[in-house]
Structures are given as C-alpha cells and as structure tokens.
C-alpha cells in the first residue's frame, strides 16, 4: 500500500513551517506529475503538502504597464482560456494548449510545469522568451529569480527546501513570439524539440531564441539572438544547432533532434519577423 502523510496548509507561512519540520515533504499542486510518479514507484515521498488552498497562489493579474503576474497554481486550462493571457501572451496559451489532454490541463498548473524542471516543459520556452521572472517565497520574504537562472539540471532547480514558487511574472509582454512543439503525434505527446523565438514589438527587436528538450535544461541561445538582431536567420539557425546538446531517448535520437532544430528555428523566426 502506498502511504504518505498529507498536509493541507492554508498559508505560505504555514507551508514553510511544515516544510521545515518535514524535510522529505513534497509539494502537491495539480498532481498530474507527482501522483503518476508515486504510483509508478519512482518516488516515495513521506509527506505530500497540498498547496491548493493557498489563495495568493491563484489568479492572473496585470502588473506594471503591460506585464502579467500569473499565480503558480494557474491551471493550463486557465492559460488557454484567460483573456489577459490570450491578449498579451498568446504564445503561452498556445503552448499550454499543446500539452496533454483536457482532463490533465484542467488539473496541471504552470507552477508545477516550471518547478518540475523537465527539459521538455512546454510553458518554459515561451516564458524564457519573455524574460519571465519567478516569484519565490523564502524565509518570510519574497524574492525574484530570472527564469533563465532557475534550472540547474533535469528535475533540479535553485529552489531550496523551504522555498515555494508563488508566481510567474512577465514584466513586459510587448513581444511577438512563436512556439513550435515538434512531436510525433498531434496530441498527448511530449516535445521532441521545442523552439520559441520572440522579438520586441517596438524599437529594436532584441530577439530571444529558446530551445526545449535538447539540453539538460531549456536553453537560450545568445549567439542566435545576436544573428537574428542582425537579420541573419540562417546563421541564427546554425548557431541554435551548435548550442544544442540533445540526448538519445525513446522519443527521438540526438542526431534527429539536431537535424530539426535548424528548420524549426527558421520557421519560428520567419513567423515573428514577417513584415
């Protein structure tokens, strides 16, 4: 019988106190990942701390001029359907819609998708392409970490044991972006390669090129960004290929992943730089 203790704190303070007293506790949000891993015997947490009743983790709001604050417990379905997201950051809605199935999207959260630190997480390349920041509750204090500094390895982040990801902040949504999720199947599939390219809608393009599923963490490719800002798309594609460090797994071979980065970066670049 799979057994674990279950905690259901009502506040962030209460959560961190539970975490301090139970170093082996694992946070539970939508549970679409954790529960599957528990059932498959991949992890055996002594305690699950269900954070779904913490109100400040919910909600999507406007910040600064045209920024967004997305509560960590925002579900993928909310990302798909919420008007603020759809208007200001449609690429995030599209990435969320590409994930799993309706039932899973109704449960799975953006915070979970980010904090699980899968190299193939679909919400991450768009967030990186918008210079998102992560709001983290630590020691009764709130700090901000740029998303690019958050991931350290597959499944690993800079989050400490008693820290909680509370929200994802996009300070400035004035970008045009395009995300391509390359999969074998049209639904219910995990990215073999993910590519997101963005540019500022006003002034200098200041492009971002982000790759998913081709390295231990999602990566930005500054060299490709530089080429794109000079209008050199082909060179940018080649730089992206160079930056990738894919592996062979059941979803695709490393060499195939390398092969498709070039056309995908090209397509995403044309999509955001057209006209």
């Amino acid at each position: 019988m799979i057994q674990f203790e279950y905690g259901c704190p009502g506040s962030l303070m209460e959560t961190t106190s539970i975490l301090r007293n139970n170093p082996e506790a694992v946070l539970l949000a939508g549970g679409t990942d954790i529960l599957v891993r528990i059932k498959q015997g991949m992890i055996q947490p002594a305690m699950l701390v269900d954070i779904k009743s913490i109100t400040e983790l919910h909600g999507i709001s406007s910040i600064e001029q045209n920024g967004l604050r997305i509560g960590a417990l925002t579900t993928l379905t909310e990302l798909v359907e919420n008007d603020l997201i759809r208007n200001r950051c449609p690429v995030l809605s599209a990435a969320a819609l590409s994930m799993a199935c309706v039932q899973v999207r109704n449960r799975a959260t953006i915070g979970g998708n980010v904090a699980n630190a899968s190299p193939a997480a679909d919400t991450v390349p768009p967030l990186m392409a918008f210079d998102a920041e992560l709001e983290i509750f630590a020691d009764e204090d709130i700090k901000r970490v740029p998303i690019g500094e958050f991931f350290t390895a597959p499944g690993e982040t800079v989050l400490q044991e008693n820290e909680i990801l509370t929200a994802i902040l996009i300070p400035d949504t004035a970008r045009k972006a395009h995300y391509i999720k390359h999969t074998l199947r049209e639904a219910m599939d995990i990215a073999g390669v993910g590519v997101c390219v963005s540019r500022k809608t006003q002034g200098a393009p200041d492009p971002r090129v982000v790759l998913g599923a081709v390295a231990p963490t999602p990566i930005r490719v500054p060299a490709a960004e530089q080429f794109l800002s000079e209008g050199k798309i082909e060179e940018a594609c080649a730089a992206a290929v160079d930056a990738a460090r894919p592996i062979d797994d059941v979803r695709a071979s490393a060499s195939y992943r390398k092969d498709v980065i070039y056309p995908l970066v090209k397509r995403a670049s044309y999509a955001v730089f057209a006209r």
Binding site: L184, R185, A187, M188, V250
Partner: peptide, 27 residues
C-alpha cells in the same frame, strides 16, 4: 507511422501510452 515497442536487451523502454504512441483522434 508511430507505434513501436522499443526494446533494450529484451526490456521494453516505453510501456505506457505516452511513449507507445497509438494515434489519437487528432492524428
């Protein structure tokens, strides 16, 4: 197009519907 039991030394590497890919309605 998509289905294949992947074996490594007789051990199936993809014993689930995520990685053993039967077509979905979208396919």
């Amino acid at each position: 197009l998509t289905e294949q039991i992947q074996l490594d030394s007789g051990r199936m590497l993809n014993p689930n519907f995520t990685d053993y890919k039967i077509p979905t309605t979208m396919d």
